[in-house]
Design a protein around this nucleic acid. Structure first.
Lengths: 346, 346
DNA sequence: CTGAAAGCGCTAACAA
DNA sequence: TTGTTAGCGCTTTCAG
């Protein structure tokens, strides 16, 4: 059986194809009575547009904006960025123009500034991540006023109004890290390392992961100590000296977890102070982290398909917005992967 | 900058659009000299067809055939099958008709019979897996005679002529299983369980995985015993009695690996004979295996994105065949995932 | 408010 | 061998 075309719908509704088009895209300038006739014909014929033909005929360009942290090559957000680029290629036929905006994770004002620019652009949709609660909230309200849909990538604020989200369950990722760190072990103390510059002003989207980590340890090893150690990554000397200081103060600690993605920054120290008894767990399969794993400095890495996640979000969000359909699932939790030395290549 | 169209290519090569089309699809009836001119123009303009327009204009239906093991709902090959169905949807605009054929893994003749049927169909391409070396070899030769491209899914024979493959590195998956079974442990003996009906006649595509497993244990625990245990899944009594017999003969064994995907068949026994000291590793995230994991009967499951793998293979293979382009990468090794109780949901 | 008609880039049948 | 041309189903402009 052939599928229905605009032409069939038009005939059925007793109007012309142009009118059908106006109804489908709510372009107005159609009498209410006609609208209903057309809607009914569409339903009866179970019509849905042929996407190839739409893409071919449409000249419109759909502009989207994306606001994420600025980053260096090889860092977490760089990989996220890659995923967006890939996704963009997959939907070339949708004619979307994706504008990237970057903010400074140490500076809430930079977020506000970029958000303002985006508002001015009036894009068809906006993608961002959850960092500065206050600024993101303001932004989301303003977008709502303009009826611009918004999507969260990587992490989210559940009480805000967004259309679609894609990321892992951060609390659970922390639990998984703790499990791997301690599996088949007796544990008396663990170190939780946070590699952040400027820990005071820095946004802290990783808190839920740390909570998951801490809760797991507390549940399974109630007598274990949990030390939190801040490492300032600004110079390799400061990294080494902080690590040295901690290690000599707590020589009994054998279990180390780095709860953000920057394990690779302490790889040198781990190597220079190698201890076969030490167990190390990190997060995210950045090239630097994988390298450390191949060198035997890390036992497990909790990760996910980082570019796949942003790719997925973009392609779905764009399709939803363009064809004004709600997403099939709003909260897309991607699954977590576990990497060990045996499966960290490719 | 606007992207080049057939028209641009035609102009540049000094021919008509029809000729360009003939060259692209190797329809023949074009002089060698013209072919080269067109090819060059295509390269210079970096031309690639607008998929929407192609889809819209083309009426041809491309028939593909897929020959894999017959299966029940929820089993490994059922999930593979799902992936094909998904992939098919993704490329609806390519107008492909995918015909599924199933053979009996205990009966090489059933493979031969289905292969013969496929040969008669003369599809544009064939997908199968590597099982009965002899029968698959015959099949591949006949396909080659007919110039029908072929793809391997899940496992392959490297000495045969195929266009594209997608699967994990099976040897490595065995090693990973062994690693997870023994991580942070001292091991003196392990049991390797094979759940197969009719072990004599049954095809054995899992051998490389077992080799990887055995080699790892031998390398890291040279003094450890490795017991191989066959379980006939035909009745739950036979499963239980075989397991009982083994367990009482070797009460010291604490480490169990099920090297094919059917761990779920011994889940009941594991539950009825629960031992907190026991470590169990299995393969593939079938629903039954996941259930066993959630119940705390399994420590680790080595898996991969099963439907993703067949989806990927199909969509790429079809595109390659239709647009007669070689695959970007011939051997697509998908990465292995590690599942534990902390990340086995979703 | 509504209809008619000109393409979008490509394929395939038909002429030459 | 090659060129010409009529659509594929939809969007969009321009007249009514």
């Amino acid at each position: 059986m052939k599928t229905a075309t605009v032409y069939d719908v038009a005939k059925r509704a007793g109007v012309s194809r142009g009118t059908v088009d106006r109804v489908i895209f709510n372009r107005g300038r159609v009498s209410q009575k006609t609208v209903e006739k057309v809607r009914e014909a569409i339903r009866e014929l179970n019509y849905s547009a042929n996407p190839s033909a739409s893409a071919l005929a449409s000249k419109q360009i759909h502009c989207f904006a994306c606001l994420i942290p600025q980053h260096q090559k090889g860092e977490y957000w760089d990989v996220v960025d890659e995923g967006f680029k890939h996704g963009l290629e997959e939907i070339t036929f949708c004619n979307v123009d994706l504008r990237m905006y970057y903010y400074d994770q140490n500076d809430i004002e930079s977020y506000r500034k970029m958000a303002a620019e985006i508002l001015e652009l009036r894009p068809r949709g906006v993608i961002t991540n959850a960092v500065f609660k206050e600024a993101v909230t303001e932004f989301s309200y303003k977008l709502k006023d303009l009826a611009i849909p918004m999507a969260f990538i990587d992490n989210k604020y559940d009480d805000l109004d967004f259309d679609i989200y894609c990321g892992v369950d951060p609390y659970n990722s922390g639990q998984l890290g703790a499990y791997l760190l301690t599996v088949h072990q007796k544990v008396e103390s663990v170190a939780m390392i946070r590699v952040v510059r400027d820990s005071g002003k820095h946004a802290d989207p990783n808190a839920p992961r740390r909570h998951g980590f801490v809760d797991y340890i507390a549940d399974h090893f109630p007598d274990s100590a949990i030390y939190t150690l801040f490492i300032d990554p600004s110079s390799s000397e400061s990294i080494a000296s902080s690590m040295d200081r901690f290690a000599s103060a707590h020589p009994e600690v054998r279990h180390y977890a780095v709860t953000n993605s920057r394990l690779f920054l302490i790889a040198n120290w781990l190597k220079d102070n190698y201890d076969p008894e030490r167990v190390v767990v990190g997060f995210d399969d950045l090239e630097g982290n994988l390298k450390a794993m191949r060198e035997g400095l890390v036992d497990f890495l909790v990760t996910k398909d980082i570019p796949g996640q942003s790719n997925y979000l973009l392609t779905n969000f764009v399709r939803n917005v363009i064809y004004s359909q709600p997403p099939k699932v709003k909260n897309n939790y991607v699954h977590m992967d576990v990497l060990s030395k045996m499966n960290c290549n490719k």
